[in-house]
Design a protein around this nucleic acid. Structure first.
Length: 585
RNA sequence: GCCCCUGUAGCUCAAAGGAUAGAGCAGCGGACUUCUAAUCCGUUGGUUGUGCGUUCGAGUCGCACCAGGGGCACCA
């Protein structure tokens, strides 16, 4: 937001260096790190060190301070900066806060929801996430993926990319056949109730239990699998009907979470192409056919001359049936055919890192130049206390529905106390926004590489650094504006001396566009989660310290606009994380 | 055995190679006649796992070690 100012100063620093026979400086700007001070800062240690390396006898720290002092003198008075100082080798340029506060506030209010959105880059990126299995449950372990994928998609979109949100649904495989066998044998004719996914999941758990406990079940399931492969019309029809129940259940979940997809792929649609592709791999000598004794493999280390790095990828079972890899290879190609992507992102947990590297490497060996555009966005899994992995087989799962219901129930209790005058529908809507916000924020406010340990207490904790805190700041801003009917005065240059919290607030708001870029480049929603929390914290500080409606006219004019800008920035930041901002709490 | 991730306050986590390592929770003590107290203010708490190195400067980069987790041929 201050690129112009930076460039102006940068040009003058370069000019100074040239005139004084100094090396070309590498200038990096940072925000002045002192609370309540707003401006940009750079240091001269690098330049001093460069001089030292050229053989000049000098102490780097001392020289850096000398340079900073001289540059500060060279810059003299500069338009837009209240103060320029040289401290400890740093050059600090303090903004004239009033002038820039007006600019930031005006920009936000002008751009509204578009604040922070960069110009289109002309690059298309696909984000594949969620990847649920039909005929199975949807638990909290799956939730992190959806929340992360959705947030990354939003952030990339705001950063200027054209984003295609893709889902890849596991609708075939042994787990489905197990389910069908169990259904045909014990539940024929039954239909799911309201909560379709739970019902499907319960039946899967039952099927799996029978499969594990009774050895006579496996051959029967295998026989059914064979019928499926032979395209037995009865089995296909049942598969399609039951699959549809799962898909409708997923739609319920995605609606609950507020996510959507632009393209939904199915394993079943890439199985045939995948098997044909393997034949091609064998013909081209990329894959080795060890059937019938062994499977079809791509010996990556052998082909690439590496050792213990890419290992061996199995691409087809010895019985000729497909594996995940069979389908993933075909899917990758289909994605690029359909969309001519500039980037293809796979949001999948970290345990599949090697596997995905194998897929990407195989695509490269096949000669696809775009193979290096595939990127595995790895994240750590959600565990239960005691490092217990969530597994529907083990029964160690927390179902999404249960989490959301309990979180909503607790939020509703508070809403009913806080806002008894609101209609039950509105109370419910607020509770829903708060509950989902809390769940989402807790997963997005830690780095992708960190394991999330799920426990009910902290998952439902809505105090402290959590979404409700941020939502509450948004609500407070709204309740001030409501008093003036959301009518804002025209742009004003503040005439009063801005308080620390006002300056900090404007400062933080102005950082949003830059943080969106960084979050997109690093695939880290955490950066947005942190910034939006900071904004809320400083807003609450401002709220308690700075009267708005009671302030004298000029102050009030500016503060009203600042409140509106803060509210808008909070809304954008929360929206990037997939979190709704309620009007009341 | 090889590879990847993690290690920061009692707990959960932050921290563009940069200035005094910050938040929340928990603990203790305060503030509602006010624009909503789901808030705010104060306070306690650190050898950033260990060692060596690179650098003007290391929680951050490199190497070695320690501890925990994960992955490595027909699961997904």
């Amino acid at each position: 937001m201050f690129e112009h100012e930076q460039q102006t100063v940068e040009a003058k620093i370069r000019q100074y260096c040239q005139q004084n026979g100094l090396p070309e400086p590498q200038i990096q700007w940072k925000w002045i790190p002192f609370a309540g001070h707003w401006g940009i800062s750079t240091s001269f240690f690098q330049l001093a060190a460069q001089e030292a390396r050229q053989g000049k006898p000098l102490k780097v720290n001392q020289r850096a301070q000398e340079l900073a002092t001289e540059v500060a003198r060279f810059l003299g008075e500069m338009e837009g900066f209240a103060r320029i100082e040289a401290v400890n080798g740093y050059l600090n340029l303090y903004f004239s806060p009033e002038r820039y506060a007006q600019r930031v506030v005006d920009t936000v209010l002008e751009q509204k929801r578009g604040f922070g959105r960069a110009a289109p880059r002309g690059e298309r990126v696909m984000v594949e996430f969620s990847q649920p299995n039909t005929h199975k449950a949807f638990h909290v372990g799956h939730l992190r993926n959806v929340i992360l994928g959705a947030a990354i998609s939003n952030i990339l979109e705001y950063a200027g990319y054209e984003v295609i949100r893709a889902n890849y649904i596991g609708d075939i495989g042994l787990h489905v056949i197990k389910w069908l066998w169990n259904y045909m044998t014990y539940h024929a004719g039954e239909e799911p109730g309201e909560d379709k996914t739970r019902w499907m999941g319960d039946l899967y758990a039952e099927a799996d239990r029978r499969f594990e406990e009774d050895p006579s079940v496996e051959p029967r399931v295998r026989a059914l699998f064979a019928r499926w492969h032979q395209r037995d019309p009865d089995i296909l029809a049942l598969w399609q009907r039951t699959r549809q129940w799962s898909l409708e259940g997923f739609d319920q979940i995605y609606a609950l979470l507020g996510v959507h997809f632009d393209r939904v792929y199915f394993e079943s649609e890439v199985e045939e192409p995948g098997i044909r592709l393997v034949e091609d791999l064998i013909r081209r000598g990329i894959a080795r056919d060890e059937r019938p004794e062994g499977p079809v493999v791509v010996p990556l280390d052998e082909l690439l001359g590496t050792k213990d790095k890419y290992r061996t990828l199995v691409v087809l079972r010895s019985d000729g049936t497909s594996l995940y890899a069979t389908k993933d290879l075909a899917l990758a190609i289909l994605k690029f055919q359909e969309y001519d992507l500039d980037r293809s992102i796979y949001v999948i947990d970290v345990r599949q890192s090697l596997y995905l590297q194998q897929i990407f490497k195989t695509l490269e060996l096949m000669g696809y130049a775009w193979a290096n555009k595939c990127y595995h966005l790895a994240y750590e899994i959600v565990n239960l206390p005691g490092n217990v992995t969530m597994s529907s087989r083990e029964g160690t799962v927390v179902l999404l529905e249960d989490l959301v219901r309990e979180a909503t129930r607790r939020a509703l209790e508070i809403v009913q106390v806080k806002n008894p005058e609101l209609s039950p529908e509105k109370q419910q809507a607020i509770a829903h926004a708060v509950a989902l916000g809390a769940i989402k924020y807790s997963m997005l406010s830690r780095d992708n590489t960190k394991i999330v340990t799920f426990d009910w207490e902290s998952a439902l904790d809505i105090n402290g650094q959590a979404a409700p805190y941020i939502q509450y700041a948004y609500v407070r801003a709204g309740s001030i504006l409501r008093k003036v009917g959301f009518e804002l005065p025209a742009s004003v240059l503040p005439v009063h001396t801005l308080t620390t919290s006002e300056i900090e607030l404007v400062d933080l708001i102005s950082r949003l566009p830059g943080e969106i870029q960084r979050a997109a480049a690093e695939f880290r929603p955490l950066l947005i989660a942190n910034l939006v929390y900071e904004m809320a914290r400083v807003f609450n500080d401002f709220y308690t310290q700075c009267p708005v409606l009671q302030a004298e006219m000029e102050v009030r004019q500016f503060r009203l606009r600042l409140v509106a800008a803060a509210r808008q920035a909070l809304e954008v930041g929360l929206a990037l994380l997939g979190i709704n901002a309620p009007e009341a709490m």
